[in-house]
Computed example of a mutant assay.
Amino acid sequence: MDIAELIQFLNYSSTEGKYFVFFRDRPPKKGGPGLVVGRRSKLGFETIVSDYFPVSEQGWAKAWETLAGMDRQEFERCRSTVLRNSTRFKLHSDDLQRRLEIDQKTRKLLGGSIYLGGHSPHVQLNENSAYDLRFTDDSLTILNVGSLRTLSSFPYRTFTNFQITGPGEISVRTTDSELFFLNTRTEPGRLRIDLSAVLGRINEVLNPAASGERAEPDPSAASIINQLKDASSLLERGLITPVEFEQLKSRLLSGG
């Protein structure tokens, strides 16, 4: 891990026992920050018992060499604790990074929204239980409260209706689902304001022409146009008759 991660790890990792290695900040005029070996008394008082080592890989190694020279048994105990905590710290760091990435994509988070009822083939929610609703640029994601594990995600392009139907009540209708939630953490009058950007984004996705976005061409229409061009080319080259061309054009335009 780099030095920033090392400092975070030392702040995150807790070691119990007589000796430990930790980060100590000092003003520049006193030498600046460093890594030191500390000693904890039976009453819990902590004392620095080593020199300051630079906050680097070399300083990290030197601090542990110093601790090993003081008490080999404590060194092995601390080493085992740090190795165990490093795995926990990695999971902790990964979780923080993932949460940061998700937060950056989230337009609005409605934490602790109560599921009132409804139906969906994509997720089984418990009525009167709380869930987090994350509104991103393209979808509504439902998660357990405080969790990053997605229970289900509903793309805005599948929405048929999205309304704030009453004080804190939210209804979501998609092509195959209908869900109702109640959010009491936000004042009813404020909820509509907080969700205005989300409502605007949903409208953009469902009505790209109205929002100035270029609608994606219908692939079936493009195919028909290409086939008509090919048929016209065949007619010009005398490979089909005008009657055959009209019959082919009629079939293509009728979807046959």
Rank of each mutant, 00 (worst) to 15 (best):
A4W: 07
A4M: 00
F9Q: 00
N11Y: 02
N11D: 03
N11W: 01
Y12F: 06
S14L: 15
F20C: 03
F20P: 01
D25Q: 14
D25F: 14
P28M: 06
K30A: 07
L35S: 06
L35G: 08
V36D: 10
R39Y: 13
R40H: 05
S41R: 08
F45V: 08
T47N: 15
I48C: 08
D51C: 14
V55H: 11
G59E: 05
A63P: 02
W64D: 12
E65S: 06
T66R: 12
D71Q: 15
Q73C: 04
Q73T: 09
E74S: 15
E76M: 03
L83P: 11
R84H: 14
S86K: 07
R88N: 14
K90A: 10
L91Q: 11
H92M: 03
D94H: 04
D94I: 00
Q97T: 11
Q97A: 14
E101I: 02
T106F: 02
R107E: 02
K108H: 04
L110H: 10
G112C: 01
G112I: 00
I114P: 01
L116V: 08
G117M: 11
H122W: 07
S129V: 07
S129M: 06
A130S: 04
Y131D: 01
S139P: 00
T141E: 09
N144P: 02
V145W: 15
T150S: 06
S152M: 05
S153G: 12
F154W: 02
Y156S: 08
R157Q: 13
N161G: 04
N161Q: 11
I164T: 10
S171T: 09
T175F: 01
F180T: 10
L182H: 15
R185Q: 06
T186P: 04
T186H: 02
E187N: 10
E187C: 09
R190A: 07
R190K: 09
I193V: 15
I193M: 09
S196G: 13
A197F: 15
R201M: 13
V205D: 04
P208Y: 11
P208N: 07
G212D: 13
E213V: 11
E216M: 13
E216Q: 15
D218S: 05
A221I: 13
A222P: 03
S223P: 08
I224A: 12
I225C: 05
L228W: 10
G238V: 05
G238R: 14
G238D: 06
L239G: 13
L239E: 02
L239W: 11
T241G: 00
T241E: 00
P242N: 01
E244C: 02
E244P: 01
E244M: 06
K249C: 07
R251I: 10
L253D: 04
L253G: 04
